[in-house]
Design a protein around this nucleic acid. Structure first.
Lengths: 284, 284
DNA sequence: CGAAACGTTGAATGGTTTCAACAAGAGTGG
DNA sequence: CCACTCTTGTTGAAACCATTCAACGTTTCG
């Protein structure tokens, strides 16, 4: 439910094309703008929420569980994941974070990180200080509404993840997650219906899906031999999208509901096809 | 981070004691007030958000997945649960809803219900129309912030649920859920450290925990014979709270973080002890 | 070159499900 | 009032899925 400021209707949604307007890619603004149409002024306020830009190497811990935090991070480029560690040493990956995603927004209230977050690939992060968010949000209910929509979307993703762990068998579980990741990538101008570059190790996949890395390996082999999909050398290829969607019960709607088709405008396609689809292939 | 309006500090948090101020129990106001301290005026606005009060029998579907919705429901009394059905017929319970909880808030943006919701016991529900929420929220960023906190809390619950399904064995899974429910009840003046009245069937428990009802039955028997807890005839009794907390890795903090110790003020204790702890015992 | 992370495979073990059956209480309709 | 059904709880045995243990090859990186 876009909130306008009383000016002309369509002009208000400038933020959705900000990627064309400014030389800088602005994933945070994009995400906010997807949720709620912003006026030019509001878009500027959101843009100013952003602090320092960091470029961090792979396997860097950005946020540590239970540590005190004072800012969120918007992912401009690269992959990361949020996770929790159990007393017995087990690890549960809560969510994968792709370009355009925001991590650590939940800490806005407690100032305590609910999960740890670590980069998978090299990543560019934009800091979003809570103080600035509170200041701006306190003056604009439209902004607060946008933040609410952001959190609401996170909730939807978690529910879908819950279905994976609770009621899908291991084949469907793996396939469903990979489908979701591809659709999320497509919503920000990466990926394609035929497949995508996926820097996730089998161990990580296992910890996201409540399985063993060993079993994930066998599941992937099975998915390959039955001609559904191939995940090898950091690349996922879908061989039979229709059958995959049918067997997993994948519903693209829950991805799209939160990121309308306008989203691709906001994040420009990666610089070169090779770089876009195989940025880490060399490591294998 | 309570947001005040500039008047005297402590006077602003009137809503937390609203249960003492008005003869009517107001779970919605309570929940909102727990998240953000509200001024007297804001509390009044929140109070007016609420529409009709419904009393519905057990097994009533309140919201149907994918149906269009125009309001949320605050649970004033009774138990309900939110769930999704998979194409293969499987059911996944996403969350149990206790007095003081709000269901269907996520539909505020899509106007489409993300999950179905059904009552377990007889329940009293207060309607909260989206239109009213948007109107009030649009004029007050503090309110929007409170709604954001509400959704953020839901996210925390889902993450904990995710840990259950992904990385806890069936014993710990069952025990952890029952512990969580008791703590949530305690935060609204029900339940006790020794146990609580629990109207959940083994089938429902199974669908929440990604198990079979048959297996849940065996797990409950095991929990009983090893002296950890008893769940029979609609009542959960904890025999060794310390050992339970240790084996499940239960962290009361994530319940409390979202519902401060002030909460018990808001929802008055149930009318009589017998009614409070065994409202459905008679059915067995 | 050695260490560390990742991928791969086999065999044995064990936790969960499936199938089948029965008991008990609640509610319904003749 | 009494069959009758429906829901829930309970148990046993067989089948299956996933884990554990163990081992080995590969690639990457310092």
């Amino acid at each position: 439910m876009p909130v306008t400021d009383g000016k002309a209707g369509s002009v208000d949604t400038v933020c959705l094309r900000v990627g064309e307007m400014t030389p800088i890619t602005d994933p945070f603004l994009t995400r906010i703008g997807v949720a709620t149409a912003l006026t030019r002024d509001q878009a500027e306020v959101v843009r100013r929420l952003q602090g320092r830009l960091q470029v961090v190497p792979p396997r860097t811990t950005i946020v540590r569980e239970n540590a005190s935090v004072c800012k969120a991070y918007a992912i401009r480029e690269g992959w990361a994941f949020a996770y929790k560690i159990l007393p017995d040493g087990g690890r549960q990956v809560v969510d994968f974070l792709l370009p355009g995603d925001v991590v650590g927004f939940a800490g806005l209230f407690s100032n305590i990180a609910a999960q740890s977050c670590e980069t998978i690939t090299e990543a560019e992060l934009v800091e979003v200080p809570y103080a600035a968010v509170r200041r701006a949000g306190g003056q604009s209910s439209e902004l607060m509404e946008a933040f609410l929509a952001l959190t609401s979307r996170e909730r939807d993703k978690l529910v879908e993840h819950l279905l994976d762990l609770g009621r899908r068998d291991s084949l469907a579980r793996v396939a469903h997650l990979l489908l979701e990741l591809d659709y999320r990538l497509q919503s920000v101008g990466r990926g394609s219906p035929t497949g995508f570059a996926c820097p996730i190790s089998q161990y990580l996949l296992a910890d996201a899906l409540g399985l063993t890395a060993i079993h994930v390996n066998r599941v992937l082999r099975k998915l390959r031999v039955v001609g559904l999909l191939t995940f090898r050398f950091g690349h996922v290829t879908f061989h039979d999208l229709d059958r995959l969607i049918e067997m997993t019960g994948f519903d693209p709607a829950y991805v799209e509901r939160s990121s309308p088709s306008l989203a691709p405008f906001a994040l420009p396609p990666a610089r070169s096809p090779a770089e876009a689809f195989e940025p880490f292939h060399a490591r294998h």
